[in-house]
């Protein structure tokens, strides 16, 4: 257990040393937050609410999505794939720690570092420019924080699974690009799901991608009843468990293949 926390801590520290990358990532994401907010404001054009979403909520959406990009590492993550492809995995598997747990620790450290040095400042700066919606009760805040932790776990579970394709295909990178691209589509990242046609919005919410990206945002923007809060959290927990299970399964298959067939 201590090894796990040590992994998190090391990864966290390392993330903090990427000063230049973090700063420039922050700047880029902030710019895009401004772009997205501007587009939504122009669309709403004096209308206050569209399909239950207020203009303020939409603006908040623009800010949070950009703030979460680095944190969730949602666009791409190929570390495990690289490890498999260049044989580093041999050394990794010899470590006295479960392969999945090890990478989870690394990712949690990274996410925590990214949250502190990128997501938080970004959102705070964003708040200086726009009036946004904040959770209106202590309970909402708490559940939101829990929710983004679960989001990161779901995101990791998905990214890890995609990376495992490298065990079977030399073209895993192409598969990865496609898989990650597909997941953005249903994540609710591009536009607030409330503005989508209902069928698409509901379908996206059912996917783990929507659960990872959009659900916490809904928690943040809307005042949900305790029942709804619980429901959201349960959906997320379901996906977390789902990925933990599937990842372990696929991983063991992959390792077996690796061991039998060689590097």
């Amino acid at each position: 257990m201590t090894a796990f926390f040590a992994t998190i801590r090391t990864s966290f520290r390392r993330q903090l040393t990427y000063r230049a990358a973090n700063l420039s990532g922050l700047a880029t994401n902030l710019m895009f937050a401004f772009f997205r907010a501007s587009v939504l404001i122009a669309l709403f054009n004096e209308k206050n609410i569209v399909n239950g979403l207020s203009i303020q909520g939409a603006i908040t959406f623009a800010g949070i999505t950009q703030a979460l990009i680095g944190f969730l590492s949602f666009f791409s993550w190929y570390d495990v794939m690289h490890s498999i492809n260049d044989g580093q995995i041999g050394a990794d598997l010899l470590k006295p720690m479960n392969f999945f747990t090890y990478w989870l620790g690394v990712d949690l450290g990274r996410a925590l570092g990214s949250f502190i040095i990128r997501s938080l400042p970004l959102f705070l700066i964003f708040m200086l420019f726009y009036k946004i919606t904040l959770p209106d009760s202590f309970l909402q805040w708490l559940v939101f924080l829990l929710s983004i932790v679960l989001s990161e776990l779901i995101s990791f579970g998905w990214r890890f699974l995609v990376n495992l394709a490298a065990f079977w295909s030399p073209n895993a990178l192409g598969i990865g690009r496609f898989a990650f691209g597909l997941s953005w589509i249903f994540s609710g990242f591009f536009m607030p799901l409330d503005l989508f046609p209902d069928w698409l919005a509901n379908f996206s919410r059912l996917t783990p991608f929507g659960a990872s990206v959009y659900l916490p945002i809904e928690l943040f923007i809307n005042s949900l009843t305790p029942g709804e809060l619980l429901q959201t959290v349960f959906i997320q927990i379901f996906w977390v468990l789902f990925f933990i299970l599937i990842d372990q399964l696929v991983l063991s298959r992959g390792v077996r293949k690796l061991v039998i067939q060689g590097g």
Partner: peptide, 24 residues
């Protein structure tokens, strides 16, 4: 896959646009 993924960004915008009359 590139066409689909990059194109979806516009699709998302277009789907959203249907709730509004114009932009600017």
């Amino acid at each position: 896959s590139g066409v689909i993924i990059m194109g979806f960004y516009f699709v998302a915008f277009a789907l959203t646009f249907s709730r509004f009359d114009n932009i600017g």
